[in-house]
Simulated scan of single mutants.
Amino acid sequence: MTRLSSVLSSLLLSASLLVIAGCDSTADNQQPVELARVRVAEAVMGPAAPSIRTNGLLANEDEIRLSFKVGGVIRRLSVTEGEQVRKGQKLAEIEQAEIDAQVEQASQAYEKARRDLERGDRLYADKVISLEQLQDLRTQLAVNEAALSSAKFNWSYAAIVAPHDGTVLRRLAEERELVQAGAPILVLGAKDKGFVVRAGLADREIVQVKLGDEAQIRLDALPGKTLTGKVTEVSGAADTASGMFGIEVALDPTDLPLKSGLVAKLTIIPSTAKAGERVYVPISAIVEGSGRTARVFVLDQKHARRRDIEVAFIEGESVALHAGLQAGEQVITDGAQYLEDGEEVTLAEPVAANRE
C-alpha cells in the first residue's frame, strides 16, 4: 500500500510539472496584440456657405477701342499687338489729302462769307440793301465758320494718339486699308487701370453674389500663384445667348506679368458665407454615408468612437457639417476605413513634408 501511494505521488508530481511546463510554453509563444496606427485631424470652424467657383478671362479693366473720326485710307500704322505705348504717342495716321481739301474748301467758303458781310455792311449803311439781306449775310458767315471748325476738328482726328500709357491688345486693320469713320482700328489696354476677370454665373449663384465680395484668382499660366480681388460689377440681366449672368472681379495690384486673355479660375466668397460658421472636417475622415448622413471616427483618448454626422456641403477637400461634431474634436483620417467602434488605436508619425 505504501508503494502504491509512492507511485501515485510520483505520477501526480510529474503531471503537475508537465502542466506547469505547458503553461509556461503557451505564455512564451503568445504575441502582443498590434494596435491600429491612425492619423487624426482637428475639426475646425469655417464659412457657413460654400464658395462659388467658375472660370473666366483676364482682361484690362479699361480697354479703349481707338478709331479715326473720318473714313479713308490708312497711311501708317506704327504699332503691333502686345507693344507698350506711352500717352501722347502717335499710333496711326490716315491719308490727309482728302481731309486737307475739305479744310481748304471750308476755309475759302468762310473767307468769302466774311468778305460778303463786310460789303453788305457798307451797302446797308448806304441804304442799298435791306436789314433782312444784311442779316442773311451774317447768318451765312456763321454757317461757314461752323463748317470750318468741323473740318478742322476732323483734321485733328486724322491720327490716332494714345490717350494713356498701356498695351496694344488688338490690331484690327492694316496699312493701306480703307476704313469707315468710327471703325475700330486698335484696342488699347490702359496700364494704370489694372486687370479684371470677367465670368458668368448661373441664376442660383448670382443671387448670392454682392458688390465687394472677396475673390481668389488662379491662372493656368502662373501655377502656384493666387491673386485676390473684389466683385465690382454684377449683371442685372442674363445674357440672351448663354443664359449666364455676367460679373466682373477687379484684381488687387500685383507685380506678376499679367496678360489680357489669360484663363482664370475664380473662387468667390459670398457675403452669405460670413453670416455664420460651420464645423469642417477633412473629406478623408468620412468612412461611409447615405444622403446627408455620414459617419466618422472620433479619437477618445486611445479609442476610436464612431459618430454619426449630418453633412451640409463639400468644399474642396473638406466637408462642412450641419451637426454631429464640435470644433476642436479629433477625427481619424488615415486608417479610419478599417476601424471598429471602440477599438484601441495608436497615433502614427506625422507625414514628413517634402523637401526640395
Rank of each mutant, 00 (worst) to 15 (best):
K193E: 12
M244Q: 15
A215W: 03
K225W: 06
T240M: 01
T228Q: 12
A181M: 02
G194A: 07
D220S: 07
R171F: 08
I206Q: 08
D239I: 09
G200D: 07
D213Q: 06
K191P: 01
P223Q: 03
K193A: 11
V249P: 04
V179P: 10
A162P: 11
R198G: 02
H164S: 15
K225D: 08
R176E: 15
A173P: 09
K225M: 08
V168C: 07
T228E: 11
Q216K: 14
T254F: 01
V168Y: 05
L219E: 03
V168S: 08
L251T: 01
T228M: 10
G189A: 15
T167Q: 11
E175C: 05
A199R: 02
V187P: 05
D255W: 00
Q180I: 00
R170T: 02
T167M: 10
V249Y: 03
L201E: 15
V187C: 09
A215V: 02
T167Y: 08
V187S: 09
P184I: 04
D255E: 13
R170A: 13
A237T: 05
T232A: 14
A238S: 14
L211I: 13
L201K: 15
D192R: 10
R176P: 09
S242N: 11
K225E: 14
K191R: 11
I206Y: 07
D192E: 14
V161A: 10
A238I: 11
D220K: 06
E248Q: 07
A237H: 04
G194H: 09
L172D: 08
E233D: 09
E214H: 12
G246V: 03
R218V: 10
F245N: 15
A250C: 01
G166A: 14
G243D: 02
F245K: 08
I185H: 05
V197L: 13
G166T: 13
H164Y: 15
K225Q: 14
E248N: 00
A199F: 02
A183Q: 15
G194L: 04
